[in-house]
Amino acid sequence: MLERFPPAEAVALAALAESHGFRGVMATDHFQPWVPAQGESSFVWSVLAAIGERTTGDLGPGVTTPTFRMHPAVVAQASATLGALYPGRHWLGIGSGEALNEHVVGKYWPEAPERINRMFEAVDVIRKLFAGSIAGRDVRHSGPHFRLESTRLWTMPPVAPEILVAASGPVTARRAGRSVDGFITIGGPTDRLAPLLQRFAEGAREVGRDARAMPKVVQLHLSWAATDEEAMRNALVEWPNGGMRFPRSDIRSPYEFDQLARTVRPEDFAGRMVVSADPGVHRADIQRHLDLGFTRIYLHNVGRNQAEFLEVFGRDVLPGLRA
C-alpha cells in the first residue's frame, strides 16, 4: 500500500516478504492517500522497478487506471518497459479508477458505466500496442474515448505482460473473461465472490477459453496484531476505508474520506476484513478464497507492524495453505 509507506520502506518490505516465503507483490497506483494520516502516495512504476531489483517474484500494479491521469499508450509503455526489465515476472492490472486519484487532472468525472467502457477501450489500445510492437509494426486507434496516432512501443518484451482487469460486479467480470487474461477483485463473502468467478468463466467460454487456466487474483485486506485489541485499533486508525459500507469511487479528497472515517465502528469490518490476533483465523480465511478458485492472493496487513506480520505469517500461515 504505497499510500501508507515511503517508497524505500515499501521496497525493503517487499524484499523482507520474499525472505519469509511470499512470492509476489501487488502495489497500489494512487495519486493521493485515502486519508491524510496514511501520509504517502509514491509513483507505482518507479517503486515496482526498484522492487524488481530486490526480489525474484511476480510484480504488478493493482490496479492502474489508463483512462484519466495517463493515456493508455503511456501505461502500455510503462508496462512494456517493466516487462523488458523483468521478463516473465510483470503483469498489468487495470481498473476503471476512483475520483480520489483521477480527478486531479481536472477532467469530467463520469458515471460508473462510462468509466468501465473507457477502461475496456483502454485495454483495446494497450493490447493493440503490445501485439503490434511484438510484430514490429505500427498501430493506430480511433474510438469513442481515445485516439492513438500511428506508432509502436520501441521497447517491448518478447512476450506481452498479462492484462488483468479489476471487477467488482458480474457484468464486468464476464466482460473480463471475454477480453483479457485474468481478473482481480478484493476479498469478501463467498456469496459475492462465487458469482464473479462464475461470470468470468462464462465470459471466457464464450470466446473459447478455459477460465481454469487463467489468473484469478484476489487482494485480501486483513488486520493481524499480537492482540485482538491492537488488531482492531490498527484497522480503525490505519485502514478505516476497509469498514466503509458505501461506494467510494466519487469521493475526491483524503480530507473528505477522513470525515467519513470517523463514522466507522468495529462492527463495520465484519464480513469485509478479518481482524484477529489468531493466525489460524487468517489462515482459514485465505484458504476459503483458495478453495473458491482464486489462483493468486495478495495479502495486505493494515497495521504498521509489517516485520512481525511477515515473520508470523511466513512461519504459521503460509505453510498450512493448500493450493
Rank of each mutant, 00 (worst) to 15 (best):
L129D: 08
A131P: 03
G132W: 07
G132V: 02
I134L: 11
A135S: 15
A135P: 11
A135Y: 12
A135C: 13
G136V: 01
G136Q: 05
R137G: 03
R137L: 00
D138P: 08
D138K: 14
R140W: 01
R140M: 04
H141Y: 15
S142M: 03
S142A: 14
G143K: 09
P144G: 14
P144I: 00
H145F: 15
F146T: 08
F146M: 08
R147V: 12
R147Y: 04
L148W: 06
E149S: 13
E149W: 10
E149V: 10
S150G: 02
S150M: 11
S150E: 14
S150Q: 14
R152Q: 13
R152Y: 02
R152I: 02
R152S: 14
R152G: 04
L153H: 05
L153F: 02
L153D: 00
W154S: 12
T155I: 14
P157C: 07
P157Y: 07
P158I: 01
P158A: 11
P158L: 05
V159C: 08
V159N: 11
A160D: 01
E162L: 15
E162H: 11
I163K: 03
I163G: 00
L164R: 10
L164S: 07
V165N: 02
V165A: 09
A166M: 03
A167G: 10
A167R: 07
G169Y: 07
P170V: 13
P170F: 09
P170N: 12
P170Q: 12
V171L: 15
V171P: 04
T172N: 10
A173L: 03
A173I: 01
G177C: 05
R178I: 03
S179M: 13
S179Q: 15
D181H: 12
D181M: 08
G182T: 08
F183Y: 08
F183H: 06
F183I: 04
I184W: 05
I184E: 09
I186Y: 13
